[in-house]
Each structure stands twice: as C-alpha cells, then as structure tokens.
Design a protein around this nucleic acid. Sequence first.
DNA 1: CCTCTTGGACAGGGGCACTATCCAAACATG
DNA 2: CATGTTTGGATAGTGCCCCTGTCCAAGAGG
Lengths: 214, 214
Amino acid sequence: MRLAELSRRSGVSTATIKYYLREGLLPPGRRHNATTAEYDEEHLRRLRLVRAMIQVGQVPVAKVREVLGHVDDDSLGRTIRLGAALWALPQVPEPDADDEHVRAAHEEVTALLDRLGWENAKRLTTISPAYRSLVVAVAAFRRLGYRWGAEQLAPYAELMHRTAVLDLDNMETHPSEAEGIEFAVLGAILNEPALQALHRLAQEEETARRYGFE
Amino acid sequence: MRLAELSRRSGVSTATIKYYLREGLLPPGRRHNATTAEYDEEHLRRLRLVRAMIQVGQVPVAKVREVLGHVDDDSLGRTIRLGAALWALPQVPEPDADDEHVRAAHEEVTALLDRLGWENAKRLTTISPAYRSLVVAVAAFRRLGYRWGAEQLAPYAELMHRTAVLDLDNMETHPSEAEGIEFAVLGAILNEPALQALHRLAQEEETARRYGFE
DNA sequence: CCTCTTGGACAGGGGCACTATCCAAACATG
DNA sequence: CATGTTTGGATAGTGCCCCTGTCCAAGAGG
C-alpha cells in the first residue's frame, strides 16, 4: 500500500503522515525507488496507535516517540519495557522543593504509602513520576487551604489499587509479549481517559440520585 | 494589597497577573486612581485557583474563564452550577458519527449503562461530555482490534461509582455553597490528576508484587 | 524633588501540531 | 509516446496557546 492508501484507510491526511514519518513516529516504508514507498498493515496499525495516543490520550508527539522507542526495544524484558514506556508519559513540572506546601505534601503522601502498606511504591518515591504528580496535586490543594492528605486519600487509593489489579489481570489475558506491551501502553493511555469518563459519568449519576436534576 | 504584593504572595509574575486580568480570569482590583488598584485575599485565592487549574489541571485559559463564570453565577442552584462548571471542561473532539467503530462503541457504552442501572446517566447520553469521551476511547480500542466493551468496563465502572460516592461525601462536608462549588470544581480538576497518579502508583505497586523489580 | 512603582496597552516569543507549497522523479492513461 | 497525475521529500508557514518584554504617563514614597 502506498501513502495515499495508508491515508485513506487511516483517515489521516498524507501531510500529517509525512509529518509523523519525519518525526520518527512511523517507520519509513519499504522504498522501491525515488518516488515510491510501500507500507503494510503494520504501518497502519502503528499509525492508528499513534493517533489514539495523540488524540485520545493527549500525549505530545515527542512523548509518543519516546514511548514507542521503549515498546520496540527488544533488548528489555516485559516489565522493564512497560515501566520505561509508562514512565516516559506524564511529566508534571518538577515541584519547587523549597515550597512549604510541597514539603507538607511529601509528608502526607509518604504517610499515605505507609498506611496502605505499599512497600514497593515507597521505594520509588524519588523517581516515580506518578509520585511526583500526586505531590503536586496535594500541594495545590493545601495551597488553597483544603485539608487533603493521607486520611482523605486512603479510601481513594484503596479503590485505585483494585483498579490496578483489574488492569494487570486484563494484561495477563494477552499472552504475546509484543501485544501485551502494546496493550499495556494502550491501557495506560486510552484506559485512563476512559476511567476518567466513567468517573465523571458516575459523578453525574450519583449527583442526580442524591439531588435530582433540579 | 497591590499588584506587586499579589505577585509576591502568589508566586506569579506581575506580567502574568496582568495577562489574567486582561483575559478576565481575575476580577479587576478596586481602583483608587489611574495608577493604583487594591487587591484583597479573595483575589489571591482566585489567583491560586486559576493557577491550579492551568498548571495542575492543564485547563486552557478560555475554559478557566468559562468555568469561573459558572462558579460565580449566583442565579443558578448548586447542582446546576456544578454541572455547568464541570461540563465546560473536558474537550474531546466530537467523534465521527459515520465511523463504524464509533457506532459500535455507542452500543457498548449504552449496554454498559443498562447493565449498571445508571438510569440518570442514560438520560444524559446525548449531551454529557463524559459520555462522549468514553465513546471515543472505546472506539479507539476497537479500531486497534481490542475487544473493550461493556463486559470489560463494568468492573471499572463499579469502582468509579464508589469513587464518585466518596467525592460527593467529601463535598457534603463543605457546607457553604460557594466553597462547596469551588471545592467540587477543584475536585474535578485537581483530584483527577491525583486519582490518576494514585492509579499509576497502584499499578507500580501491583506490578512489583506480581513480578518483582527484575 | 526626584526616583520608583503602578496599571494599561500592545508587540513579540516560543512551543506545538499540523498544513501548504514546491519539486523532480515516476507512474498512469489515452 | 505524450501528458497529466501521483509520489516522497524538503521547507516554510499557520493557528493556537501561554505567557513575557517593553513602553508609557500618572501617581506614590522617601
């Protein structure tokens, strides 16, 4: 299949596909000569994955490239590859360590991990982007004068842990390594918006149950 | 307090504060004369809220203005105000109704709502942005060839419903109307990143429990 | 009195995700 | 075989967003 057909079957304009090729999100096609290159089903699949990451997952192009690099890196084991791919993602701006709210948030979050017995996560506090994101969010709450710490977060964390168990159970139903990794990355990137949407829908449902539509 | 002090106490540059004033995210100060305006604690609070929305919540400036407009609209009741504020948020591009995957996703999601007995949410399917987001995410999964529908989503939805119950319980502990609304908006905007971070931390914890760090 | 600060206006910058244009080399078609 | 179309590649430009820098004259402060 040539560029035009790849464009037609994916619904992505040729200009955008060229842009992705340039940016290295898509491997180049098999070149025949100066003006012809051949693409296959794998390109189509990759293109759809890229689109899903960018449009549904709102992942910036540079991050997509990074994540795909890890997904494709055959030299790593499954767990590492997955971790590397996922850690390339979120990137909240580094919190200001001098800020008192940030310090307080650090304490709250480590207290939370202790309380939950998340021993493994505790070992990652210095490097995990997720930990950092959590600290930033808690600090923002505190800055606005709301108490929002271990006590309030613990029940949420409990529910999120069950969600994670579901995630991994689902992942284990995809035996092939490459597909498993891709599915896991998709899980992180597409399932999170889906979860968020479910959360908001549930809020709407519960609000209506409690207060009606008014 | 004048501009410089507002800047110092919030950590936001005067240039940026001027920008927010121009954009209507911050009400103007009480003018004394051509070169002096007075700001108060309410401005500081609002400024911190705006920053939290933009930096932690990644909400675009235009949306912040819209959301704040609803938060400040005294003519609406609490539930409506909250709904209006939250619905101003998400920004998933409208799915292509002609796409077969989108149609299938619609069916899956309504099947899910039936299965869960979310009668109120079902009445909102045509207008709720959350519903739309969910459809888009499910469609993206299907486009990539993964079965991801009512059956897989139901246990997640169950957990998200419990999360929503926590949210509303928390909100009810904030009796004042204005504060309650603000807290709810914050809940949607800051708590979602926090939840997402907890989710990822939980994934890391659970992955390590199952497979170790390797 | 003289310097500094203030609020307001407006231009500019940098990042991002495309998008439009141009080109010469191949196809494709009558 | 002539002629119009399509191809991949390169490059410049667009539109949006979130600021940031500079200038200004009126007023505050010591």
